[in-house]
Design a binder for these strands. Structure first.
Lengths: 153, 153
DNA sequence: ATTGGTGCAAATCCTTTGCAATAGC
DNA sequence: GCTATTGCAAAGGATTTGCACCAAT
């Protein structure tokens, strides 16, 4: 079972790349830093915009390739929740997601997922599980008009 | 919380459509029957191929529109598991899915998902949950070389 | 010096949209 | 007859691919 490093450092990335005989490039370092800096998942396009100042001339294909590589290294989680874009999540603590069917917003859901029985069932079927992801579909507070806080009354 | 009808009949669909003031078309009936007939999720394209004999001249946009409508009616579940295509699942009993990262295969996972705490957490955040979906990522038996049965030794 | 990575442009693929024709009601 | 649905063609948008150049080892 691949586990994500908590808050991976540049050195972590460098070590992982060296171990695979791959090169340490500024694109890889800067994109990892950007993921670390963010508290939220982001699209490849958003990552590109964010790193543009540090990496002028960087292209979307490179961002995709890099995110894909970081995914293999366990430094980022790719999310496909049915909103038409892939999201890349640098938050490494275990957490799940909620997707609003009205506005497409994707929010973090911090609650313990008891996946043990599911993983067990997968294993029994010959499947080798690496990670379990749960998505709650529904309406976000805003779209449902149940926004908590100020206007909760 | 929207719940899926178990093995919906033509009459179920007709009633649901009438209730919404929508028309009963052969495309809608035939596509629902095809979903009922299948035991597995399928792509829009696969559904189109399957219904072609009964509905010559049917087009992909119609299949998408119909699957979308059936989804709203709770007669089919749309799955987005990151394999690049949407899958439509007519299996209405609660079940989850396993996705092989090597070959992209999507298999059913029949094990109880204890989503109560997650849904509770979502509600606490003001979110109105409608359904929870869990996906186990990993390697299928074939790709991992752990195929059970005959060659399990 | 090698060759893996990158940037650019173009291709690919799934899904949606616009609009005239058709079929439910 | 009225208008939602359909079929067709075309558009849209995310991601991938091919290839020449560049930079990490």
């Amino acid at each position: 079972m691949t586990s994500l490093q908590p808050h991976p450092t540049d050195q972590d990335l460098i070590a992982l790349l060296r171990a695979r005989g791959q090169r340490v490039t500024s694109q890889r370092l800067v994109i990892l830093r950007e993921l670390r800096r963010r508290r939220r998942h982001a699209t490849a396009e958003e990552i590109l915009e964010a790193v543009r100042p540090d990496l002028p001339g960087t292209s979307l294909p490179t961002v995709y390739a890099t995110l894909d590589l970081l995914g293999e290294l366990g430094l980022v989680r790719k999310l496909d929740v049915g909103v038409g874009v892939s999201l890349y999540d640098g938050r490494t603590e275990p957490h799940q997601h909620m997707v609003c069917r009205a506005c497409g917003r994707v929010e973090d859901l911090d609650a313990e997922l008891r996946a043990r029985p599911l993983l067990r069932a997968a294993t029994d079927a010959g499947f080798v599980p690496e990670r379990a992801e749960l998505v709650v579909h529904g309406l976000c507070a805003e779209c449902a008009g149940t926004a908590p806080g100020p206007r909760a009354a």
